[in-house]
Structure formats: C-alpha cells, structure tokens
C-alpha cells in the first residue's frame, strides 16, 4: 500500500514537473517555431534564455517589481533577436554560425553583468494556488502554478491561429516556404524575418525570466544548462506546429522531473539514466524524425534548398 502512494506521488511529481520545468521550454520552442516558420534558424536562443534570466532577475531586484523584470527580459531577447536578424540578412551569412556566435556573446554578457546579482534575492513572480481545494500538500504544491505558464499555454493556439489565418501569419509562412514566391508577391523578406526573429527572441527572453524569477527562482550561471538548445531541437520534433511545441515542452518537463522524483521515493538504481532522460529523449526524437528519403513533414521550404 505504501508503495502505491509512492508511485502516485511520482506521477504527481512528473505532472507538476511538466508544468514547473516545462514552462521555459514552451516559450523558447514557440519563439524558435515562429523564427523557423519565417525561414531562419536561431540557435542563439540559449543565449536569449540566459540573458533573459539575468536581465529579469536584475531588473526585478533593482525595481522591486518582478513583472518589470519579465518585460525587461522580453526586451533583452528582442534586442538579441534583432541583432541576429540584422547579421543574417547580409549575403552569404550562415544563420547557424551567427546563432552560435550570438549564443556565446549573450552568455558572456549575461555572466559579466550578472556577477552582482548572484547573491541578492529578487522578488519572485506570484503563482496561483489551484490546489487549494485539496488537503494534500503534495497536490497543493504541484498545482501551485505560475501565471507565465498560462500565458505560454494560451500563446500556443494563438500562434497557430496567427500563422494559419492572419495576413501577417501568411506572410511569415510564405517567406519561410519560398523566398522566390514572397519576392514575386512584393513582400519585404528581410522585414518579415526581422520581426519574426525579434518576436521569437523576445519569447525566449521571457522564458529566461521564468527560470530566474519563479523556478528554480534565482540567478546563477548554471541556470540554463542547455535548456535553450533542447528547446530548439524540440521544434523539429514538434514538426513546426505551435500546439505540438506545447505538448513536447510538457513532455520534456515531465522527463526532467522523473529522475529526482524516483530517487525521492527510494528507487535509486540508474539515476544517471533517469537524470539523462530529457537528453536521451532529444536524441531518440532526432533519430526518429530523420529520414533518408525526403524532407520532414511540416518543415519550412526554405530549409530544403
């Protein structure tokens, strides 16, 4: 019987983890999804995430308002996105290489300016206690959900709708599918990509502020440890579909929670394996999604060329 309770709590921990750990994935993957829909890859979102985490924490600490921190984090992400877009629109510039350079640049800047903010405790983002109906502290904790999570969840269908039905969304898709077609329609390709990369970068920045201002809730240099890069891989798994990005992010969040949850109920074999679950999942997905015959379904046409 006691074992049953243990396993139930693992399930609850994984569910709670999907929400807690998955939220930054939602923002970064949606940001990358939008960028890639416009035909450009931004590998630098890991840098945006770290920069957003640092900026958000610093502004929240200095101003006393965590929401101002979120705003600043988003803005810092936008600036990095614009920089990436401006660099990439020059002829013969490889967006992958620029992305890696931007990632290193943003990480370095964030570490440099973040020195002063490792120690202080900044005000956190509030959360809503959806579990207050329950007497169990376990459920209460798992359902203590941050507002940014709902923003992320709402953003996914909104982005799907935006891409499917609005004129701007169509512009993004045309530019991503075929720059020739976009040119013949008289579109300004660079402007569409600039705006998409900017918005995508901004979303990743907001994802960063969730890390430093809510969970785990403090700025440190090991905070991201590659989550931004995993989110980029996740977009391919999600087949460039915003709704799938949401589901995949939750799956990754849950996978990250699995290792600690199992150890805490005393299942202690193979914890290195469980801790590696998100990374193993990334690899498996990449292998499963690859195809020797043709392009992956849903891939923006501009990447095929």
């Amino acid at each position: 019987m006691e074992n049953d309770i243990g396993l139930w709590s693992v399930l609850i921990a994984v569910l709670g983890g999907a929400i807690r750990v998955g939220t930054p994935f939602i923002f970064v993957s949606l940001g990358e999804c939008l960028t890639e829909k416009a035909g450009r890859i931004n590998l630098g979102l890991e840098g945006n995430l770290i920069m957003g985490a640092m900026t958000g924490y610093a502004v929240s600490y200095l101003s006393g308002s965590p929401w101002l921190g979120v705003l600043a984090a988003g803005s810092s992400g936008c600036v990095l996105g614009i920089l990436h877009a401006l660099l990439c629109q020059n002829k013969q510039v490889n967006d992958i290489a620029v992305g890696i350079a931007m990632m290193l640049f943003a990480t370095g800047i964030a570490f440099f300016y973040g020195k002063a903010f490792i120690q202080p405790s900044a005000p956190h983002l509030p959360s809503i206690g959806f579990g207050n109906w329950s007497s169990s502290p376990v459920i209460k904790a798992a359902l203590d959900i941050n507002v940014l999570f709902f923003l992320g969840v709402a953003l996914a269908p909104a982005m799907a709708w935006f891409l499917r039905t609005t004129r701007w969304g169509n512009a993004v898709r045309v530019v991503g599918e075929s720059s020739d077609a976009a040119l013949s329609l008289g579109m300004n390709i660079n402007r569409v990509r600039l705006l998409s990369t900017m918005a995508g970068g901004g979303l990743a920045g907001i994802g960063g502020s969730y890390l430093s201002l809510y969970y785990p809730g403090s700025w440190s240099e090991g905070l991201s440890s590659g989550q931004g890069l995993m989110a980029v891989a996740l977009v391919i798994f999600a087949r460039w579909n915003p709704m799938n990005c949401l589901y995949a992010s939750l799956l990754f969040g849950g996978a990250a929670a699995l290792g600690p949850a199992l150890q805490s109920v005393g299942i202690n074999w193979g914890y290195y394996l469980f801790n590696a679950a998100p990374y193993v999942l990334t690899l498996v997905i990449m292998i499963a999604a690859s195809s020797a015959k043709g392009t992956v379904r849903g891939m923006p046409g501009e990447f095929v060329k």
Partner: peptide, 15 residues
C-alpha cells in the same frame, strides 16, 4: 551546479 534539478529534487523530497 544544476539549479533546475536541485529545485525539482527539493520539491520531490518535500512531497
């Protein structure tokens, strides 16, 4: 140094 995992571990243990 893995803050997300440390937070996750702490929450699981409290649970």
């Amino acid at each position: 140094s893995d803050p997300v995992k440390e937070a996750e571990a702490a929450n699981s243990l409290v649970d």
